[in-house]
Amino acid sequence: MHRRVLRYLAILIVTGFCATTAQALRPKDGRDTITEGHRIYDRACVWCHGTEGKGDGPSGWSIGRYAAPRPRDFTAESYKLRSTPSGELPTDQDLFRTITQGIPGFMPSYRSLNEQERWQVIAYLKSLNPAFEQEQPTPMVLPSPPLFPSGNGITNGRALYAKYECRTCHGDNGAGDGPESKAGHLRDAYNLPITATDLTDPSSFKNGATPHDLYRSIMTGLDGTPMPAYADQFAGQEEAAWDLVWYLQSLSGQPGR
């Protein structure tokens, strides 16, 4: 038990340190920052996302031609990877996280850019969509995993997996082979066929595979895909949501609760 507590404390300290450092290196928003971000974008992002940010770069054209996901259209499209409620824009921290971590199987990590450069790119990406000037994305309250999880976490989580019909898309055993996925019924915002995530393979999780990442994906959903947000269903039942997270982790043989 003590080891677990220490582990969480260490995660909190490291996360806090990283966030603080990243913020400290963040340049002021403004024309110069956007211009510099544009310059970096033309070097690092344009191949997939296109010269105007519409997701139609030379490589992106073929990536999203016949199956999802198509490279993001920064001018109008929704964002899948967010900490905000369904339908909302992502926060700057969400964009920073995605650029830093990449999207397994689809987008590389851009840790090769220093943090200031990543913030400059974010300023440029936001300038492509006027909605960022009109809306104030507010992150949901996404708590850290409980220090003392309930003893029946996986059992409860399995029941919730059935109750919330996760199996319909992700399959009985979480392999992404649910009836809707197998039948090819799942479509993204461009009506391109999309398959459900294989929950037994955490390395393929687009939104990250830590317990916190899973919790965030469940609560916010992945806009532009059939994956809905469950925040309203779990309102006031935070522990139940964590139980579902423990069950999802157990599908890939990760340590259970």
Binding site: D73, A76, E77, S78, P85, S86, G87, K163, Y164, E165, A189, Y190, G221, D223, G224, P226, M227, P228, A229, Y230, A231, D232, Q233
Partner: peptide, 13 residues
């Protein structure tokens, strides 16, 4: 949704 922008996508059990 409106075009490629999701307005909301929520699970309704």
């Amino acid at each position: 949704s409106m075009g490629p922008r999701t307005f909301v996508n929520v699970a309704m059990i």
